[in-house]
């Protein structure tokens, strides 16, 4: 004979037993992943030393506020243009011909070196200028600059 009943007595697992169970699980995981955990501790220690850990936790704790603040900044047209300029710059970088630019920059550098040791007091006369065209170095520079100007005008 069994009347319908609805009362349920839950199995009381003691807090200690549950804790013991959890600890066992953790122990097991630690042993399985010993190397990774030791390395992880190293990483944590360095992060702690440099103060990143504290900073990180604060940011995570206030994730939504932080994000809102950052986004508010970018909503300002002034800063929004930074973002769009940044991404445009990235695109630009992709288009630059670095090898050619390097050539030009090398030349610019040696020009700067020469200029740095020039005596400011010496005056260049009109004649000196004409004479300088004959100097092979100066002539190469002029030819290159003229070619550059031509290209730029296209």
């Amino acid at each position: 004979m069994a009347e319908p009943i609805t009362k349920i007595k839950r199995l009381e697992v003691s807090k200690e037993a549950l804790e013991q169970q959890d600890l066992q699980e953790i122990n097991h995981a630690v042993i399985e992943n010993k190397e990774a955990i030791l390395q992880g501790i190293d990483l944590l220690a360095s992060l702690h030393e440099k103060g990143f850990l504290e900073l990180g936790s604060a940011v995570v704790r206030h994730k939504e506020d932080a994000l809102a603040n950052v986004l508010r900044i970018f909503e300002n047209p002034k800063y929004a243009s930074i973002v769009s300029n940044l991404s445009k710059l990235v695109v630009l970088l992709g288009e630059l011909k670095v090898d050619e630019l390097k050539y030009l920059l090398d030349k610019l550098n040696s020009g700067l070196q020469e200029a740095a040791v020039t005596d400011d007091s010496v005056k260049t006369s009109y004649f000196d200028l004409i004479k300088a065209v004959n100097n092979p170095d100066i002539n190469r520079s002029l030819t290159m600059l003229l070619a550059f100007l031509k290209g730029m005008g296209r």
Binding site: F74, E75, V83, S84, S87
Partner: peptide
Amino acid sequence: SMIELTKTAE
């Protein structure tokens, strides 16, 4: 805001 930022950045 994130949608707006995504669009600006791209």
